[in-house]
Structures are given as C-alpha cells and as structure tokens.
Simulated scan of single mutants.
Amino acid sequence: MSLETWRVLFRECLGSRGAQYCDEVAPLLVAVDQGVKPSLLWDVCTADTSALLALLNQARVKGLLISKLVLVELDLDVFIVNVAATTRTLMSIIGASPTWLIDISGQNPKVANSENHDQFRTHLNSIISQLGAATDDVMSDPTGMSSSGEATATQNGMECLPQNSGASSSVKSGVIKAAQVKLPEDLNLSTIFGCMLGYPHIYWWEGESGGNSLSGMPLKVFKFSANCSIDGSPVELFSFSIPEALEDDLRPGIEHWGNVINVRIEQAGSFCNAKFQCDSVLCLSVAL
C-alpha cells in the first residue's frame, strides 16, 4: 500500500487543494476501510460529492479500499462510512447501559436521563435501517442509477444520489455511492456525529446552550493512536473529551472502549503499536 499512490489519486480527484491533506486523510480512510474506525467526517477541505466518489472508487479499483463503504450526506456534512463497522458501533451504543450521553445543558454536566437515551436510540435505529437500505440498493443496482440515469430512491427515508460518471463501472456490486440520511430537523446533530464516529461518551444539550457550559471547565481528553503501515508514522484515530468531574463514573466504560479498539487494531492489517493516552485540559472556549 503506497502513500504515493494515494497522493496521485488525491491530486487527480481533488486537485492541488485537496492533495495537501492526503498524508493526513489517507491513513484514516484505511482505518475506516479496515473497521478500526466506523466512519470518517470529511472536514479537511471543501469537496463536492462527485469528487469524493471519484477518489473512493478509484482507490477501490486500485485495491486500496476493499470494504463496503457509503458516502453519507447528513445535513451539510459528509461521512465516509464503513457500513458493517458503523452498524456494529451503533448497535453497541443502543444496547449499552444509559451512560453514554453527557448532558451539558446546565452549569454542571451530568449523565443524561433515560428518556434522552431512549430518544437517541430511536434515531440510531433509523440510521442503521437507512444504511441497510443503501446496502441493499447497491446490490440490486451496482451503478447506483436507474435505467433513466436518475438517482435510485430507496426506502426508509434514504435518498440515493447519482454516481459520478468518472468513477469506474468495473467495481460492480462493490461500487461506492452516495446517500442521504434523513433525520428530524430539530435533532442535535453534534450528538449524532459523536455516535457515528464511535466515541464511548457523547455530548448532548437541549435548548440554545450549544454546549457552552464546557467553556472554562476542566476536561479530560482521551486520544487513541497507532502506527499506519502506509508510511510507518503514528496516526491519531480517535480524540474525545469528558468533563473531569465525571471521570470516575465514566472511566470504566472508556477503558472497556479502549480495549475494544485495541483488539480492532490487532485484527487490522495496516496498524500496530496502539497508544491510548489521557490529558487534562482547560479550554476557555469550546465549540461543538
């Protein structure tokens, strides 16, 4: 697996602006492909759907990506999703004890109540259903297009978008396409993003607080990294925080999560030397 091959693809599909992020993003794409990370939020540069699809499908043609991936548009953001790994992650969250939501609506953060957890379980079940519908549609229509060239509509609220014409058609049922996940407009998407990214604890707030209660609050930041065989350098795979005041209550779950990720690293073919660290920080301003 050559980093230079990735660099060529980034230049061809995303241009010079996108190519500068190749060394940062390519190992994360490999982590998603190998199920170490369930998904990747594309936030490094502006790239339209067709360009990202071209990048992913050309990487698939060259054997750099092999898993069942979907480009998911969620509101104005885009995720590159490993369908199996994301489904597994969301099902794990749904089945976990109700401690994974951290309510930061008030001055003092706390574990959210059972009602809040139940609400998000409903939304996570919807996402799982929609991802399954997208996967079924790939199998029935490998190009992601109807005979008229229009985007193929699927069930359960997920709308499939047309495949970029420049992407290879030789991948057959393994073709990567784009789809939109439909969720209520008033839903706190930052919380959904945390679930999609596979964090063990995710911030939630109600009203217009926007998580501002975290500003100036002591936080514990957990980071999980590993060396990637693309160039042998360490890659930060996960980074999330919790209020320091809740550390004693949440640490057992975080340690269990770290052990699970470590097993996935051991099972992956392109990562080694996993490292899990925790640092105390005090942020004067926190944006979620």
Rank of each mutant, 00 (worst) to 15 (best):
S2L: 05
E4S: 11
L9E: 11
C13I: 10
G18Q: 00
C22A: 15
V25S: 02
V25Q: 10
A26W: 07
P27G: 03
P27K: 02
P27I: 00
V32K: 04
D33E: 02
K37T: 02
L40A: 01
L41D: 06
W42D: 07
C45I: 12
C45N: 11
T49R: 13
L52C: 00
A54I: 00
L56E: 11
R60A: 15
L64W: 00
K68G: 07
L69T: 00
L69E: 01
L71M: 11
L71Q: 08
L74W: 02
D77A: 13
V78N: 09
I80V: 15
V81W: 05
V83K: 00
A85V: 00
T86H: 04
T89H: 02
M91K: 10
S92L: 05
I93W: 08
W100M: 03
D103V: 07
I104W: 06
I104A: 07
I104P: 05
K110A: 13
V111Q: 08
N113Y: 15
T122D: 09
H123F: 08
N125A: 02
S126Y: 01
S126R: 11
Q130C: 04
G132N: 05
A133P: 05
A134W: 08
T135P: 00
T135D: 06
T143S: 15
M145P: 00
S148L: 07
G149L: 10
Q155L: 13
Q155E: 12
G157C: 08
N164G: 14
A167G: 13
V171W: 10
G174Q: 10
G174W: 12
I176T: 05
L183H: 02
D186S: 07
L187H: 06
L189F: 11
T191Y: 04
M196I: 15
Y199E: 03
K220M: 15
K220T: 08
F222A: 12
K223R: 14
N227D: 02
G232T: 04
L237M: 01
E247F: 09
D249M: 09
D249E: 14
D249P: 03
G253W: 04
H256R: 07
G258Q: 06
I261C: 03
I261G: 03
E266I: 10
A268R: 01
A268M: 03
A268P: 05
K275D: 06
Q277N: 04
S280W: 01
S285Y: 14
V286A: 09
L288F: 08
